[in-house]
Design a protein around this nucleic acid. Structure first.
Lengths: 218, 218
DNA sequence: CTTGGAGCATACTACCGGGTATGTTGTCAA
DNA sequence: TTGACAACATACCCGGTAGTATGCTCCAAG
C-alpha cells in the first residue's frame, strides 16, 4: 500500500477483485455481521488464509468492497459531467445511469448501503471509524454532483422542490430502491434492466416537480 | 401463548412493551445480528433472564418487534379506510399518515425494514421462516391497501404510472425514506415532523404522476 | 541451485454470545 | 401459613467466528 509500483498494484487488484466479488455476494445475502470470513472463502473455493493474506481484518475487506462500489458509481457518471448544457437533460442522464449501475452492480451497492448504516450506528473502532468517514466522504461528494444539477434545474424554473437536502435524499432513495426490491430473473435481459431504470428515473424526476413533457425519452 | 385469558395477555403485553422498545432501539442502532440479548438487557437495566422469561429466542423477540411495528402502521391508516370518496384524497391522507408513523416510530420501522431483508436473505430456520412469512403477509396486505387506492386514482386518469408493482415499491420507498436519513434533533417538534412528512408525501405523489394542483394541501 | 518471498492452506487460540439450568424474591389464593 | 407460580437474577455451557502462527509450494532473481 506504499512503495509498490503501479503495475503490481494492478495485478494485486486483479487478484483481489475475485475476493471482492465473493465478499459482496456474501454481504448482500446475509449482511455484514452474519457473514463469516469462512463463508466468503467457501464461496471462493479456498480458505481463510487467502483472504487474510490480502486484508488485515474483516472490516478492511468490507471497506474495500464499499470503496469499489463507490468507484463504480463515480466511473459511471464521469463521462456525463461535461457533456450537457441543460441541467434537466444532464439530470436525466445522470439519474438513468446511476439507476442502471445500481441494477448491474447490486451486490456492491448493497454493501455501500450497509456501510452507511454501519457508519450511522457508529459501532466501530476509532481507527475503522476514520476509514469509514473517508468512504462516507466519497459518497457525499458523489451526492453533491446530483445536488448541484438539481439546483441548476430549479434555478431555471424546471423543478420546484423546496429543501434541496430532503429532496436529494428522497431522490436518491427512489433511484437506489431497486437494489432492495429487484431480484434478477433468468428471463431478464439488458432491456428489462433499462425499463426498470426508466421507471425509477421518471418517478424520481417527477417527484422533483419536473414536468412530464421533459421526460418523454427517459 | 395458548389458553391465557385476554386480560393476562394484556398485562403481559404491558410488561413486554418495555422490552420491545429497548429491543427496537438496540436493533435500530446496531442491527439485528450485531445486537446481543445482553445489550437489550443492559438498556433495560436488567439481565438476560428477564428477556428469556418472555421470549423463547432472540428471533422471537425480533419477530414481536416486527409485529408491533406493523400493528402501529395498520392502526394509523385504519381510520382513513372508509372516509374518502376521491382516491386521490384518500391516497394523500394515507401517504401522509404513513410517513408520519415512520417518523414517530422509527426504531420499530427500522426493524420492520430489516425483517424484510432477513426474509429475502432467507437465513433462518424453517420454523422461524414460517413466522417471518406470516409477518411478511401482514406487510403485503398493508401494501395492498395502497396499491388499490393508487389504481383507483389511475383509473380516474389522475395518475399515470405504468407498472403498479414497480410504482408501489418506489412510492413506499419514498415515504419510508426518512427512517434512514432523518435523525431527530432536540429542536424538532411536531411541526417539523409534519413538514418532513409533507415533503415526502408531495414527492411520492408527484412521482406517481399526480398533478400539483391536487397537492396544495399536503 | 538456492534463497527469499508471494500466495496460499492448516491448525490452533481466545472470546463472544445464544441458550439453559437453577436459584431467589415477591405476591396471592386457599 | 403455606405452597405455588410469576418474574426475574446468577451461573454456566458450548458452538461459532475473528484473528494468528505456522507450514507448504512455486516462481523468479541472483
Amino acid at each position: 500500500m506504499s512503495a509498490t509500483p503501479d503495475s503490481e498494484i494492478g495485478t494485486a487488484r486483479i487478484h483481489q477483485e475475485e475476493i471482492l466479488e465473493a465478499a459482496a455476494l456474501c454481504f448482500m445475502e446475509r449482511g455484514y455481521n452474519a457473514s463469516s470470513i469462512d463463508d466468503v472463502a467457501r464461496r471462493l473455493g479456498s480458505t481463510k488464509g487467502r483472504i487474510y493474506h490480502h486484508y488485515r481484518s474483516k472490516a478492511d475487506l468490507f471497506a474495500d468492497v464499499y470503496r469499489y462500489g463507490m468507484e463504480l458509481n463515480a466511473a459511471a457518471i464521469k463521462p456525463l459531467c461535461g457533456a450537457y448544457d441543460d441541467p434537466v437533460e444532464k439530470l436525466k442522464a445522470m439519474a438513468k445511469v446511476h439507476c442502471l449501475t445500481m441494477l448491474r452492480t447490486r451486490p456492491f451497492q448493497r454493501c455501500v448501503w450497509e456501510g452507511v448504516s454501519l457508519l450511522m450506528r457508529g459501532a466501530t473502532t476509532p481507527e475503522q471509524r476514520e476509514t469509514l468517514e473517508e468512504l462516507q466522504g466519497l459518497r457525499e461528494s458523489y451526492a453533491t454532483r446530483f445536488r448541484e444539477v438539481m439546483e441548476g434545474a430549479k434555478a431555471m424554473g424546471k423543478a420546484d422542490f423546496e429543501s434541496s437536502g430532503i429532496a436529494l435524499q428522497i431522490f436518491l432513495m427512489a433511484l437506489n430502491s431497486p437494489i432492495f426490491w429487484y431480484s434478477p430473473r433468468e428471463t431478464d435481459d439488458e432491456d428489462k434492466l433499462d425499463e426498470i431504470a426508466s421507471r425509477c428515473t421518471r418517478f424520481a424526476l417527477q417527484g422533483l416537480g419536473i414536468k412530464k413533457e421533459y421526460l418523454q425519452d427517459v
